[in-house]
């Protein structure tokens, strides 16, 4: 029992990283109704920029974080221009496929430009173990969990208490009507993409400084974990993304403890499989889907 609880605590910590990634995916999906598969690889390139600053310029944590975020935004803008703005609004599959192509492209760029491939990523959080009763947690993981919750609150305030947030929700809810209100849809979508890139950059920075190294495979890893966490929680739902990420973390931590690394990776897919059968809309998405269906029938 002690083991199980400890695993759940560890899982919450890992899960907060997944939750941050899922937030990025779910924002793009919620606002644009499209999947951005190259989200993970954009973060990976951003992280290399952070590492470069760390190795060549300064070991200041804020500078490295800033470099990671800015480079992620730059790659994010590149992806937005090619996969989203350049493609017609209703061609959702086309933009998903092109974001897959950009994923491959970004990964190849990383493989060719970076001869050593694996680079150290600075561990900025001093690892101290915090004990409470029979359980313990690493301080950097607690920081990550708290930051994730803080970002969720900030995002909520942005979306529901500010003017750009109102515009963003309008565009996502009914792009035609928002155009009639005089909202410039493509500017707002650009803003959403920039916001998502900031989230992604922060997620990458936090996860990698706990991992202390970055490889070109980080992009694949981040896309998979983020997508699974988003689908578990319910696509397009912000609290769903957080719940999905934490649930994935907890299941993986237990699977790892009781079954080893192979079982851990398997458990993520198994969890998704079960969720898609039992609640295809995810933990939170289901309700929204059902409400929409009821409203459609009434109209």
């Amino acid at each position: 029992m002690t083991d199980f609880v400890q695993n759940c605590i560890d899982g919450l910590m890992f899960g907060s990283g997944y939750a941050l990634l899922a937030l990025g995916f779910t924002l793009v999906f919620g606002v644009m109704k499209r999947l951005n598969l190259s989200f993970g690889p954009s973060i990976m390139l951003g992280a290399y920029a952070g590492t470069w600053v760390y190795l060549n310029i300064s070991d200041n944590a804020w500078l490295v974080a800033l470099a990671t975020v800015i480079a992620t935004i730059a790659v994010g803008i590149y992806v937005e221009r090619l996969c989203f703005r350049a493609i017609r609004h209703d061609a959702t599959i086309a933009s998903m496929v092109s974001s897959f192509a950009i994923w491959m492209q970004l990964e190849e760029v990383a493989m060719h430009l970076l001869p050593e491939r694996t680079y150290p990523f600075p561990a900025f959080f001093t690892t101290t173990t915090i004990e409470f009763g029979p359980f313990y947690a690493r301080s950097e993981h607690i920081t990550m969990l708290l930051l994730t919750l803080l970002l969720l609150v900030l995002l909520h305030v942005f979306l529901f208490r500010t003017r750009p947030g109102l515009a963003l929700r309008s565009v996502s809810d009914n792009p035609l009507a928002s155009a009639y209100m005089g909202i410039n849809n493509s500017n707002i979508l650009f803003l959403a993409f920039a916001l998502v890139s900031v989230l992604g950059g922060l997620a990458g920075f936090l996860i990698l400084s706990a991992d202390t190294q970055v490889t070109p495979y980080f992009g694949l890893w981040a896309t998979f974990k983020g997508l699974i966490a988003m689908m578990l929680g319910g696509m397009g739902s912000l609290p769903g993304a957080i719940l999905g990420g934490l649930l994935l973390g907890i299941v993986e931590a237990n699977a790892f403890w009781y079954g080893g690394p192979v079982i851990r990776d398997l458990s993520a897919y198994l969890l998704l499989f079960v969720m898609l059968i039992v609640r295809p809309g995810g933990l939170i998405g289901q309700k929204i889907v059902a409400e929409q269906r009821a409203a459609d029938e009434r109209v």
């Binding site: 003017r163 109102l166 515009a167 929700r169 309008s170 809810d173 009914n174 035609l176 009507a177 928002s178 009639y180 209100m181 005089g182 909202i183 929204i288 929409q292 409203a295």
Partner: peptide, 19 residues
């Protein structure tokens, strides 16, 4: 009509004053 289906009535009206 094209109201914003997943936004509250108050938010729908606020969006009308966006400009």
């Amino acid at each position: 009509r094209l109201v914003f289906p997943e936004m509250s009535v108050a938010d729908n009206l606020a969006a009308g004053a966006y400009c």
